[in-house]
C-alpha cells in the first residue's frame, strides 16, 4: 500500500493540523516508511491468533457507581480564555 500527498493532506485536515507543503512532503516520507514497516509486519502469519485490543493483557477494573466529584467550576474555569454565565465561550460553531 502506498500513500500519496493528497492522503497526507486529508489526514492533516481530519486532525485539524495546518501543515505547509514542505511539512506535507516530509510527513509523506515518514509515513511511507511507517507503511513499509506495517507491510513487513503484515507478512507474519497470524492464523489462529486472537487480535489484541490493548498492549496489556489485563481486564478493565470497574468503579462503583458513586458520585465522588464536587463542583470545581471556579478552579476549572480560572484558566479558560473566556467564560460567561458559567459557560465556556468559544468561536461560534453551527453545523
Amino acid at each position: 500500500m502506498s500513500i500519496e500527498l493528497k492522503d497526507v493532506n486529508h489526514i492533516a485536515n481530519l486532525a485539524r493540523i495546518d501543515i505547509s507543503p514542505a511539512e506535507a512532503q516530509a510527513a509523506l516520507a515518514q509515513l511511507t516508511n511507517i507503511f513499509a514497516l506495517i507491510e513487513e509486519m503484515q507478512t507474519v502469519d497470524t492464523t489462529g491468533v486472537e487480535p489484541m485490543s490493548h498492549g496489556i493483557e489485563v481486564n478493565q477494573r470497574l468503579r462503583e457507581d458513586r458520585v465522588t466529584e464536587t463542583d470545581q467550576r471556579e478552579a476549572n474555569q480560572a484558566s479558560a480564555p473566556q467564560v460567561e454565565a458559567g459557560l465556556y465561550l468559544v468561536p461560534k460553531v453551527i453545523e
Binding site: 473566556q82 460567561e84 454565565a85 458559567g86 459557560l87 465556556y88 465561550l89 468559544v90 468561536p91 461560534k92 460553531v93 453551527i94
Partner: peptide, 15 residues
C-alpha cells in the same frame, strides 16, 4: 451542550 444564542458571535459550552 452547545448554546448558540445569546452570546454575540460566540457559542456557550456546558459540559
Amino acid at each position: 451542550k452547545s448554546l448558540h444564542e445569546d452570546f454575540a458571535g460566540m457559542s456557550g459550552i456546558d459540559l
